[in-house]
Structure formats: C-alpha cells, structure tokens
C-alpha cells in the first residue's frame, strides 16, 4: 500500500467547466451514424454490455435465465456477438460462472457492501475476497462517498487500493456513484483517485441512484482516463452504468468514446455498458438493419 503522504493532492485535479462539457456532448449527439457504421456500432455495443441483475429479489432462477440470454442474445439473428459479462451479487457468482463456463463471457460481481458501501473496511475486503473465491473475473466496488465529500481523499484512495489487492487477478471496476458527487469537478477528482489507486475500470453508477450514467459525467471520466494515459501510457477502462437503455444513446456513447480516446478503447476490454434493457433495443436495431421493417418489443425475449 502506498503511503497516503505520498499521494498527489487530489484537490488540484484538473477543473471542469460544466457548460463546456455539455456543449462537447451536444456535438457527439449530432453525429449521424448510418448504415454499415451503425451496424458495426450496434454489434460493438452488444459486445460491451455487462448484462446486469442486482435486485434484492434475485433468485437462482432469474440468474439462470439471464445467463442463457447472455449466451443467446437472439438466435434468430446470425452473426451476433455475445455480451461482455454478466453482473450479479457475490452469492450468485458461482452459479453464473458455471452457467457460462466455456464461453468468453466474464462474470462480474458487485462487492464492498454494494450499493451504499457503508460498512467497515474488513467487511468490504471479505466481501471482495468472497466474490473472487467464488470465481468472479471482475469486481465492481463502490467508493465511500461520505468520506469523499468530507474531503477524506486518502481514505477513499487507500480503500480502493486495498480492494484492488484483495481482487488478486480479477479486474477491478470502481463505481464513483456520480449521482451523489454533485459536481463534475468532484467526478474528476474521484476518477483521479480511483485511477491512482489502481482501478482497471472506472464506472459511473450503481444504478440505484438518479441520475445514473450521463454523457457529461462519462466524458469527464474519459478525460481523466486520457490524461492518465498521456502521463503514464497506461490504459484504464470505462463503464457507464444505469440509464442507457436505447441503441441511439449507446451509439452516442460510442461516438464520444471514439472521439475522446480513439480506436484502442473501442473494445470490451476497455469499455462496458452496465445495462439490463439496452441489449434488446440494440437487437431491435440490428434486426431492423438486417430485415428492413421497424421491430416490435414482443419479438425479442426480455430475459
């Protein structure tokens, strides 16, 4: 663990102008993505999905259905990729892992007292270790927003670093829960803290707080990733989660990613969508491009 005294002063993280960010985002959303470019984007987006169920009412039955869907997005449409991963609570990891064995689909588990993160470090670490021991390839942790908002950046940093250590070889996604951070400057600081502490991915939201992922927030995080890359040559992944439910919006996110970080990030190793209903909207669009007519929801299975 790094000594907190040696940490950068995260209060000096680059500042962000809110209106400027929104104007930039508006430019991405006016890109016109058609035909072959669109099909390519739709398939890529499908391939970047972390298919998610994070409910108190989750059951083995629900998880089984989701895993099947992850493997068989739409068997009637040939040439589809699979999703990138499924994302579940730690107690469902073992089952998901078994269901997906032999496939390229990863199993991600939330941990660290998701979604609030309000518990002791010991419990967070044991939560993480449990998920990994159950077979999780990826761990989605939440940061301590209360500590962050108090300005206790060293605490937040060290906690992430400790969880990263507990992850072993599993990739760590650090959820900032941007909906609770109030300003884009805070989003930037939290991104810098998470990246510095060893995050493999930074992620916007738990999906339990509104607003969840937005394009402005995601752009700020992408810029933090870019600055880190400029400085160190090391890539960090990005995962917007929550609120991205339409193919149109997903393509706009891809445009933003593409024009901010470039070609190298256009893969599910470096970008994910945390979403549950996005897949079907993407499928409807793929089907529309392949078949011609606009599609209806009842022709695509929900789970």
């Amino acid at each position: 663990m790094k000594n907190s005294n040696a940490l950068p002063d995260f209060r000096t993280s680059p500042v962000v102008d809110h209106v400027g960010i929104e104007e930039r985002v508006a430019r991405f959303t006016t890109r016109s993505i058609k035909k072959a470019s669109k099909v390519q984007a739709l398939k890529l987006a499908l391939n970047m999905i972390d298919l998610t169920t994070l409910e108190g009412k989750d059951t083995p039955g629900k998880v089984a259905q989701m895993c099947y869907k992850a493997l068989h997005l739409c068997d009637q449409l040939p040439g589809l990729p699979t999703v990138a991963a499924v994302c579940v609570y730690p107690t469902h990891v073992r089952q998901a892992k078994a269901a997906l064995s032999g496939s390229p689909i990863k199993v991600a588990s939330v941990a660290t007292a998701f979604p609030s993160g309000n518990t002791t470090r010991e419990i967070k670490l044991s939560d993480t270790r449990f998920a990994v021991s159950e077979g999780a390839d990826e761990v989605d942790m939440v940061i301590s927003r209360g500590e962050f908002l108090q300005g206790n950046y060293a605490f937040v940093h060290d906690e992430i670093a400790a969880v990263k250590e507990a992850c072993g070889s599993a990739r760590l996604k650090v959820i900032l829960e941007t909906g609770e951070l109030s300003t884009l400057d805070n989003v930037r600081r939290a991104s810098d803290i998470a990246i510095h502490a060893g995050a493999d991915f930074i992620k916007t939201s738990t999906g339990k707080i509104q607003p969840a992922a937005t394009m402005p927030v995601t752009l700020v995080m992408l810029q933090a990733i870019k600055d880190h890359y400029y400085k160190t040559g090391k890539m960090v992944g990005m995962k917007p989660a929550g609120g991205i439910s339409t193919a149109k919006l997903a393509v706009q996110y891809l445009v933003m990613l593409h024009e901010t970080l470039g070609d190298a990030w256009m893969t599910n190793q470096w970008f994910r969508f945390g979403a549950s209903s996005l897949a079907n909207d993407l499928l409807m669009q793929v089907a529309k491009e392949a078949r011609g007519p606009y599609q209806g929801k009842d022709y695509f299975s929900n789970d």
Binding site: A84, M235, M266, T267, Q269
Partner: peptide, 17 residues
C-alpha cells in the same frame, strides 16, 4: 498493481493492451 495489466482476451476482440 496499477491498471491494465490483466490479460483477459475477451471474445478475442482485444487490441494491443
């Protein structure tokens, strides 16, 4: 332990890491 050193080749879509 910092970032991007994992080698998961997802769906063999990975570019140079």
């Amino acid at each position: 332990a910092v970032a991007a050193t994992t080698s998961s080749d997802i769906n063999s879509m990975s570019t140079s890491s």
